[in-house]
Design a protein around this nucleic acid. Structure first.
Length: 572
RNA sequence: GGCUCUGUAGCUCAGGGGAUAGAGCGUCGGUUUCCUAAACCGUGCGUCGGAGGUUCGAAUCCUCUCAGGGUCACCA
């Protein structure tokens, strides 16, 4: 597909020699209002260099480039050169491109197969997978899809929270009040009950705290009984997490969590010591980061045991050695901003130049209407419940609408879960939000079901025109873009054209919502087109051209949804 | 208090140097003998938190300031 911006930059740089071509390329913009043209070039900045009034410069440029065949019209309004691309050529080229690339439309080989690690989801074992975990899980999965589409070799790591004093507490509670059968029946809910009870009981019996710490020390030391319980809790937890991951269609390449690095920390403590980075402070060991404007990082506790910052450093080094990553991305809540700044700085101070390739991708907090979520106080909304409720609600809507689908349950699953995922990915990730049932279960407007509905509508059109016509359109037999030059058809084509750029931008900014927003735009424009024009018309050539555009839009929507980790139903 | 993020329409949010600041929800009204109405169209007294500054041009960049969130040593 031709890059119009590049062509225009070439043309303008021929007539304006005072500016670098790349600079000109950067100045080319798309007018906010499509009526002002497809591309615009503001001439204000040239006034100083050329010592001429901007409108005159604009006129000169317009005169020089207007003869080119890619333009339908070039005009200037004040200091702007407004360029209108020839709609037939543009739409024709675009459709050829999309039909040729199909499910690969939007992908590129920008990444040259370089290794990228995305660490995401990372729940704590023996604790419920609640609505707060959805963010890292869904954002991380989308970033995986986006980087994969950009041609990177992506490794998905689920850095399970499977280590730390909390397991001392858990084992302690299990021994006091636990029951094997209950755990087997419903592992996480039962273990959570024990954990909650521990925190209630410890108020009355403070000695439990010490007992829990001792158990963890035993666990760390490899005591058989403790290790066995820990392993059991881990396995049962993972089984439950897998249920949710399956619902979301998410997979991982590695479940190497915190415990995996528990024996890989020694050498960094030595290295830190050798490089004189460690300081003693109140019996603990710290790295002083004051000159970098940060509070000190606590490396080992006064009792000698390690903290998660040490494990994160060990993990980063392990990953560099094991994967030799180009980028090492962490999808972790913004609450941990300081933590990431600290350990990445420490890795840098250790002399590893790849510290700059470790990227923290923060996201905002989810709270409940009744306040902050708290596992300890049992104030949680389980993700599995949210997904199930969304699916049930979707099924009710499908039955109510009476749309004949071959498999109602399957469709309800695609749409219901898609609604939750889509909503999660529609705002900038840094924003906080309050979870509300009304909001996740609302399917009107800028929502997943809206986009999926648009896809189903396009699919329905293709069924109506028949396989023969679709096959012909796909092969571009008798294709003439002169039938699809209306405003809505052209706007739709322009949005489809932009998809590949959008994927690149979303990758650079590590922001899936850019993709989400864009497919909403495509869906809106498709619905406008669908409403304004009849597709299944008598005239064979007109029909073929319109069907080709429908196929293109449908492809773009499907490929876009896939980048969010969503499916698209044929009927709904 | 230090650092940091957020503040744009009644609500939820896009836009992050350029031309009259945009969507969705909600409100009120309209569209179906016609390809799925989970749709489409119309309907918006917005100090872009406030004040300075830089610029031909600022919601966008800088400084200060107000409000809210997060975080700041033995949890992760």
């Amino acid at each position: 597909m031709v890059n119009y911006k590049e062509i225009i930059a070439d043309l303008i740089s021929e007539s304006v020699s005072d500016l670098e071509r790349d600079e000109i390329l950067n100045m080319i913009e798309a007018p906010a209002d499509g009526k002002m043209g497809d591309y615009a070039f503001p001439c204000f900045r040239l006034a100083k260099v050329l010592r001429k009034a901007p409108p005159m410069i604009a006129k000169d440029i317009a005169d020089k480039i207007s003869g080119n065949e890619i333009f339908n019209k070039v005009e200037c309004i004040n200091a702007y050169v407004n360029m209108y691309i020839s709609r037939e050529t543009f739409t024709g080229d675009l459709i050829k491109d999309v039909l040729e690339q199909k499910e690969n439309y939007g992908r590129s080989d920008l990444g040259k197969n370089k290794k990228v690690i995305v660490e995401f989801s990372s729940p704590n074992i023996a604790k419920p997978f609640h609505i707060g975990h959805i963010r890292s899980t869904v954002i991380g999965n989308s970033l995986y899809k986006i980087y994969n589409a950009l041609g990177y070799d992506v490794e998905r790591i689920n850095h399970l929270g499977d280590y730390g004093t909390q397991f001392g507490k858990m084992i302690c509670a299990y021994r006091h009040w636990g029951n094997k059968e209950d755990v087997i029946k419903s592992p996480i809910k039962t273990l959570l009950e024990y954990y909650t009870k521990f925190h209630v009981e410890v108020e009355e019996h403070p000695e439990l705290d010490q007992e829990a710490r001792d158990i963890f020390t035993k666990l760390e030391g490899g005591a058989a009984e403790e290790v066995e319980l820990w392993k059991w809790f881990r396995e049962e937890s993972l089984k439950e997490f897998t249920v949710v991951y399956d619902m979301l269609g998410i997979e991982f390449d590695s479940y190497a969590g915190e415990s995996f690095y528990s024996d890989k920390m020694g050498r960094f403590l030595v290295e830190l010591e050798e490089k004189n980075l460690l300081k003693d402070s109140q019996g603990a060991k710290i790295v002083d980061l004051e000159e970098y404007g940060m509070s000190p990082a606590l490396i080992t506790k006064s009792d000698g045991s390690t903290l998660y910052i040490t494990r994160d450093i060990a993990a980063a080094v392990y990953r560099k050695e094991h994967y030799d990553f180009y980028k090492n991305i962490y999808v972790v809540a913004s609450q941990q901003n300081l933590h990431f700044q600290q350990w990445i700085k420490i890795v840098e101070l250790l002399g590893y130049d790849w510290a700059k390739d470790c990227i923290h991708v923060p996201f905002g907090m989810v709270s409940l209407e009744e306040g902050t979520m708290s596992t300890r106080h049992g104030r949680v909304v389980f993700l599995e419940d949210v997904l199930n409720k969304a699916v049930a609600q979707t099924k009710a809507v499908i039955l109510e609408k009476g749309v004949a689908t071959d498999n109602i349950d399957e469709t309800a699953k695609i749409v219901g879960i898609g609604a939750v995922v889509f909503q999660e990915l529609s705002n900038n990730r840094i924003k906080d939000y309050t979870f509300s049932w009304d909001k996740v279960l609302n399917f009107d407007g800028e929502t997943g079901p809206y986009v999926q509905y648009t896809y189903a509508r396009a699919s329905s059109v293709l069924r109506k025109v028949g396989e023969e016509v679709v096959a012909k359109a796909e092969k571009l037999e008798g294709f003439d873009p002169k039938y699809i030059t209306s405003d809505s058809a052209y706007q739709l084509a322009k949005l489809i054209y932009k998809l590949p750029e959008i994927v690149v931008e979303a990758g650079e900014k590590l922001e899936p919502s850019i993709v989400t927003r864009h497919i909403i735009n495509i869906a809106q424009e498709f619905n406008r087109f669908y409403h304004n024009e009849h597709i299944n018309v008598e005239d064979e050539n007109e029909k073929l051209a319109k069907v080709a555009l429908v196929i293109s839009a449908r492809t773009a929507i499907k490929n876009g949804l896939r980048l969010l980790g969503m499916d698209a139903p044929e009927k709904m």
